[in-house]
Simulated scan of single mutants.
Amino acid sequence: MTDPSDSLSLAEHGAAPRDLPPPAPLRLNARTALFLDFDGTLVEIADHPDAVFVPDTLGETIHALARALEGRLALVSGRAIDALEAMLGPLEVAIAGSHGGEFRPAGAREAEALAEPLPAHVLERLSSFARANGDMLVEPKPHSVAVHYRRHPGALTGLLACAEEIARSEGIAMKHGKQVVELVMPGSDKGSAVRAFMQRPEFQGTSPFFVGDDVTDEDAFEAVGSLEGAGVLVGPLRATAAHWRLPDVDAVHAWLDAALNPSAASKGI
């Protein structure tokens, strides 16, 4: 298995990290737990969060994987749970939304909060900056707030400075993802969500995989690595704690489909 610290140490010394191998075929057995990011992993990132294309079959694929794993699957997304279900329909699988701030085991209808709600004045401070600098898209969530700057790249320096100052003064975290800057409450991170799921009976004794694309997934990559599992980075190579890499969303779907249909995959269908 590739040591993720090799990639990180090379990047810190100015050298390009070496490429990561593709993951082995996914085995849906009693030793496997699977955690999946959403944007950039199961669907392509779009200019607007509401503009992503969601395949009609995606919801059923997620449920099929959960059934095959006897519940040892969870979606772990930066989106709120309500936003995920608006795109995928009602979900019976385990979900962590808002970067882990919302935690909902499989079959439950109410989410447990792993973080405090975002204070209203934090939302207003960041929203005021966004309005004054091109009216950037602001995405409020229960435990965080995201500002998407894809259409306003020139505002990034000021946005980062504003978000960093708010984060320092409020004692909260700032995350800089793909064309988005987000302020999140303590405890609202994907690594904490993975660890919380792994303490549940259905996940115990398994080797967890986390599949994600963004720097906001690094907490989860580190978590699964410490739990005798592995992270799968989706997209271009970068410094990461992941062990393996898939080039794009299509490759993720092919990897998952092959696990659900191993006989077809072995015949090259």
Rank of each mutant, 00 (worst) to 15 (best):
L91Y: 05
L256F: 10
I95Q: 05
L137D: 08
E182C: 04
A163Q: 04
P23A: 05
G134S: 07
L8Y: 09
A83P: 03
V252Y: 01
P90R: 12
A96S: 14
E228G: 09
E60F: 08
S77P: 09
L137A: 13
L42Q: 03
A15Y: 14
L256S: 04
L156V: 14
G205M: 07
V138M: 03
V184N: 00
R72N: 11
E85M: 11
T32C: 13
R131N: 13
R131L: 15
W255H: 12
A259K: 06
I62A: 10
G97T: 09
V234T: 11
K178T: 12
A33F: 08
P142C: 02
K141E: 00
H148P: 07
V211L: 06
L8I: 15
H48E: 06
G205W: 07
G40A: 04
A108M: 13
P55M: 08
E85W: 06
H121M: 06
R131A: 13
H243F: 07
E110C: 09
R104A: 05
H48L: 10
Q179W: 12
D135L: 11
E124C: 10
D6M: 09
L160G: 08
D37S: 11
L137F: 13
S7W: 02
L183M: 02
D47M: 12
D56R: 14
F38T: 09
P142A: 06
D250M: 07
F103S: 03
Q204G: 12
S77N: 02
A173M: 14
L227D: 11
L84S: 06
D47Y: 11
H253W: 14
S266D: 13
A161M: 11
G187H: 00
F210T: 05
A66C: 08
G89K: 04
G268R: 08
A161G: 12
H176E: 07
V54P: 01
R67D: 15
L10S: 12
C162G: 01
P153S: 12
H48R: 12
H121Y: 13
A193H: 05
E102S: 03
G187W: 00
A64F: 07
A223F: 05
